[in-house]
Simulated assay, not measured.
Amino acid sequence: MNTLKNLRVAVTGGTSGLGLALVEALHKQGAKVAFIARDARRVGALASRLPGTHGIVGDVSWKLTTHALAIQVNSALGGLDVLIHNASSLGPVPLAPLADTECEDFEAALAANVVGPFRLTKALLGSLASSAREGRTALVVNITSDAAVSAYPNWGAYGASKAALAHMSRIWDEELREHGVRVIAHDPGDMDTPMHALALPDADPATLKRPAMSAEELIERIRHIVAKEEVTV
């Protein structure tokens, strides 16, 4: 049985890299998908290519858009079962030591990688709790990184923000589990994406995972949760 059919899923950063691969794979497997991204042209093109998906133009790091994005997600999907926070910011580009990182660049990484997901989750928490009360899946997935655990030079803004996101996931999972809402952090590994190329332009793409493979790994994890199998955060 296809456990993802008609699952209502929202993906941020849905027009590039892992987000794009997730939107494509979830749509193919029968999920109802809404995706958020900043570039209106790319949002429109993807929605046209994948009929039935719902493209939403917006920047999750901008406080004033949070409730509008939540309203559009709910309107498009008729509720929400799974929220995937994939949109991310590297911070300064080229990457820089923390001592050379501008405060504004550090704040931008925190806004996109931690505060934005925090706000949007709060705005959609009622929808997720409603799904849980109906016996449906209610899940938040925060895309994190090994940079949240390992101290890589020049990755300070990104690593610190992802570490905060990972720990926020653990706390929220403890707080919300009794209400039927799960929150997990997921590290998809080093992928051949535009963001990775921006961070490490000399990296050999052949040594990196394809986003489609990482998307399938995450979807399999989601499938286990949908099937009520126990998952460690």
Rank of each mutant, 00 (worst) to 15 (best):
Y152V: 14
T232P: 01
A148M: 01
H186V: 10
L200F: 14
L46W: 08
G91H: 02
A40C: 05
S48Q: 13
E134D: 12
Y152C: 06
A157K: 04
E134F: 08
Q29T: 13
L22S: 05
P205N: 07
T232W: 13
A34H: 02
R38K: 09
R170E: 15
H186K: 12
I143A: 08
R119W: 03
R38V: 05
I219Q: 05
T65W: 11
A21P: 01
A203V: 14
T121L: 03
E134P: 00
A10N: 08
A47H: 03
A160S: 15
L98C: 10
L110E: 00
L128M: 09
D190L: 10
A197L: 04
L4V: 03
L64W: 04
D146K: 08
L165N: 07
V115K: 08
T137S: 09
I219N: 13
A37T: 06
P153M: 07
R41C: 10
D202K: 15
R41N: 13
P205G: 05
K5W: 00
L110W: 03
R119C: 05
P153R: 05
E175R: 02
V233S: 11
F106C: 04
A197H: 10
N2D: 11
L218F: 06
D39N: 15
L80C: 11
E134Q: 15
M195D: 00
M1G: 13
L218I: 09
R38Q: 10
V183L: 01
A151C: 12
T121K: 01
A212V: 14
R223P: 00
L50G: 01
G126E: 12
V73D: 06
R8Q: 12
V183Y: 02
N154L: 12
S214N: 03
H54P: 04
N74T: 15
P201E: 08
R136K: 10
G116S: 05
E24R: 13
A31V: 11
D81I: 02
G189C: 12
N154T: 12
L198R: 12
L69V: 04
W172M: 15
S88L: 05
L22D: 06
E24H: 09
I171F: 03
